[in-house]
Amino acid sequence: MMTGSYPSEVVRVVCALLSPFILLFGIYVIAHGHYGPGGGFAGGVFVAVGVILPRLTLQEELAFKLVPTALGPVAAGVGLLLFLLIGTVPLLTGGAFLDYGAVEVAGVEPARMRYLGILVVEVAVGLAVSGAMLMLFDVLVARRTR
C-alpha cells in the first residue's frame, strides 16, 4: 500500500499546483477533439494524469478522498454505455451504427446532428479511457475498493 506523501516539498507543491490545469487541458482536448488534434483517447489520458498526479504526491487519505477509487470503474462503465447508446440510436431510425445524420430532429439539419453526435461520442470515449487508466493505476498499487 502506498502511504504517505512524496518526500520532497518542491514536487508536492508543483504537482498540487499543476494537476488541476492538466485536468482542465484534458477536458479541453476532449471537447475540441472533433475539429483539432487529440480527441477522446488523448483527452482521457490527460484527465487520468491529472487525477493520478495527486495520488502519487499527496497524502493517501486526501488523494483518495478527492477522487475515490470507485470512480474509475464507474466512469469506464458509464462511458462505454453512453457510447453504445449514442451509437445505437441511429439504428432505430433506419441508419447505420454511429450514423447520426439519419436521426431526424425538427429544426436541426443532418450536418449539425453529425457534429453533436461526434461530440457526445468523444465525451463518452474520454470518460471510458480515463476511467480505465485510473482503474489500472489503482490495481497496480493494490488499492482495494472500499
Binding site: 518526500p7 520532497s8 518542491v10 514536487v11 508543483v14 499546483l17 499543476l18 490545469f21
Partner: peptide, 16 residues
C-alpha cells in the same frame, strides 16, 4: 510557463 515550472522539478525529483 509549464516548461519553466516542470523541467527543473522533474530533474529535482530524479536527482533527489
Amino acid at each position: 510557463v509549464f516548461s519553466l515550472i516542470a523541467n527543473p522539478t522533474a530533474v529535482h525529483a530524479l536527482v533527489r
